[in-house]
Design a protein around this nucleic acid. Structure first.
Lengths: 353, 353
DNA sequence: CTGTTAGCGCTTTCAC
DNA sequence: GTGAAAGCGCTAACAG
């Protein structure tokens, strides 16, 4: 346009440093010629790539881990709207994850990381903290470290979720509500179990039996059988709250093996509201995680941190929402001949607030 | 090490241009100092980023689209083992996808793309072809374009899959096998339906009724009801092959509404072997897509293309594998008291060949 | 076989 | 308000 490259750069990034008229001319030319700044050159110069590293974990076929797919999409959407991109980071084991992070960092390939499923004494948070790399985590860090328990995270309130589920069951008249959760050394598991316990106590009920097992449908099946043989809390449980959809689906299999109908004979609730929950018959009552909002918050956090600004809130705890389907409702599905259905695949469109 | 930067570069990328002794010295120093070449600088100089662009599509809650998650992981693994990385590309609508690709290209952010779910007259393949950008697709391009029907793809043989499923049902004694597929304008749907038809004919059976609907569990439910009311092919269908797990799950709901038991009263098969298939009760017989191999082939293809070499095979068609579970087996699940189970969540570990 | 030169496209700094 | 100079870290091309 007869101007120096510099003015173009300024016009695009420091609009106030350039005469309004000149700027207009430049912007017009940029649009017309379809000019796009070169990412690599900018990265080289600014030592910042506007790239967020995320690890994609291997999926196990026996887990209803579908949340991850939605999460990645939402995260990608959030990043895109802020002019950022996601780069996937591959690590085979838990140990190699830190190595993979280091490599991405050293090659100036990423500015920040988003972690998922952080746990107590997580080596990833420790490493990133030590390196001074911006990051945020989906899931509390559950950090016992008194030095800096302040790693930024966004999480969904599992305790409140299980309180909601349990209260829902109590409202339906259940007096013997059991819980199928994760092992006792799991912070998330303890949190969710706590919600069940609180709701039972709040309703003046003696809590039913509870069990903890890995997030595996087969283990859940055996554990559910044990719970159904247990009469603590006053008689066989008539309702079963589970810490995840995977566990709930395992429990539903146990019910089927005993000739019991989910909802009608024993109410079952899950957690995550995975697509599977809507697809099984009867539909699985579950707790929807506000994945979109989680992702938005995470992007906001890491971009803020990369900009060197201070976070308004280092921890965000969002509320899950109960989605009621047939697995917790006493009425059996109505015949197709009547055209009436009970909670099934045709849930109302899910506007993820 | 008292050597020039150049020799270091050579030692790492053109090992034969440097004296073996010098090279060893360099390699040792590199390891000791933890030197990592800067990605941005290399990209700038070589005009190549070793980045593959992939779009993550929005997930709908009513589809068992879990394959995507596994696929992304496998692709990431394949890329990593070749020294490449995946960058996620976000696009809201189908139109903006091409725009998003263009932007990633213009900023030299990516060297190639991997597409999924390509269809006839796909604007993405058209654009990438026109731009001369290396890409490969998971899913045939079904290209009717006679000019260059040669876009590289990897796909899974749906026709053979439905042949396998149908043959399995025929072997169990079913004589009235229906098919629940996708709309007739879907190439994939036609392909899978063809497999069912062929297997029926090969077994000397009059094909049962068939229906096509969108990949939506609710639509599948109504369609399944219609099929079960249909007596073409000689009597009410006793088996139902479906073009996807989502459809099969919708069909299983229809069965439940009629008081029919999957497997025992009407056999059902799906396609994809999504995690949901293993988690429902009874387990859903399905066709496993060799996702890992698909991903490996795709990475091999795009890296070969980027290197400017010629592809040994531009099209790779892989075979799915039948995974038999309770939904297609006549015996009802054995009581838990006996300890014996029929096809359920505890499938043997799945070594994705 | 090794070192020097140059330049990828951009932006920070500083004259003008 | 605008332009010139310099350099981010790397590697292709060539000279020594």
């Amino acid at each position: 346009v007869g101007l120096s490259a510099q003015s173009v750069s300024n016009a695009l990034h420091n609009p106030d440093r350039v005469a309004p008229a000149t700027r207009e001319r430049i912007v017009a030319a940029v649009a017309e010629l379809g000019y796009r700044p070169n990412r690599a050159a900018r990265t080289l110069r600014k030592r910042s790539s506007r790239l967020i590293g995320v690890r994609v974990e291997p999926s196990r076929d026996d887990r209803a881990a579908l949340l991850r797919d939605q999460f990645l999409h939402a995260l990608s959407a959030g990043a895109a709207s802020a002019g950022w991109h996601l780069i996937l980071c591959h690590a085979d084991g838990p140990g190699s994850e830190v190595t993979a992070y280091r490599e991405l960092l050293d090659t100036t390939a990423v500015d920040a990381f988003v972690l998922t499923g952080t746990h107590r004494d997580d080596e990833r948070t420790a490493a990133l903290r030590e390196w001074g790399v911006p990051f945020a985590s989906f899931g509390r860090t559950w950090d016992a470290d008194p030095v800096d328990p302040d790693a930024p995270w966004v999480d969904v309130d599992g305790r409140e979720g299980l309180r909601l589920a349990t209260a829902h069951l109590v409202a339906l008249g259940h007096r013997h509500v059991a819980h199928l959760g994760w092992p006792h050394d799991s912070d998330v598991g303890r949190d969710r179990r706590g919600g069940w316990l609180e709701a039972c106590v709040a309703a003046g009920l003696e809590p039913g039996p509870d069990a903890g097992c890995e997030d595996d449908a087969e283990e859940a099946r055996s554990s559910a059988h044990r719970l159904l043989d247990d009469a603590r809390g006053g008689g066989r449980p008539t309702a079963l709250t589970c810490a995840s959809d995977t566990l709930a689906l395992g429990a539903m299999r146990a019910l089927a093996e005993r000739g019991l109908r989910p909802g009608v004979d024993v109410a079952v609730t899950g957690f995550d509201n995975s697509p599977t929950a809507a697809l099984v018959t009867p539909g699985l009552t579950s707790l929807r995680q506000p994945v979109r909002r989680v992702a938005q918050e995470l992007v906001r956090m890491v971009t803020t941190l990369v900009a060197g600004e201070v976070l308004p809130a280092r921890h965000v705890l969002l509320l899950p929402e109960l989605v009621v389907r047939g697995s917790s409702l006493p009425a059996p599905p109505v015949s197709h001949l009547t055209g009436v259905r009970t909670g099934g695949p045709a849930d109302p469109p899910q506007e993820d607030r």
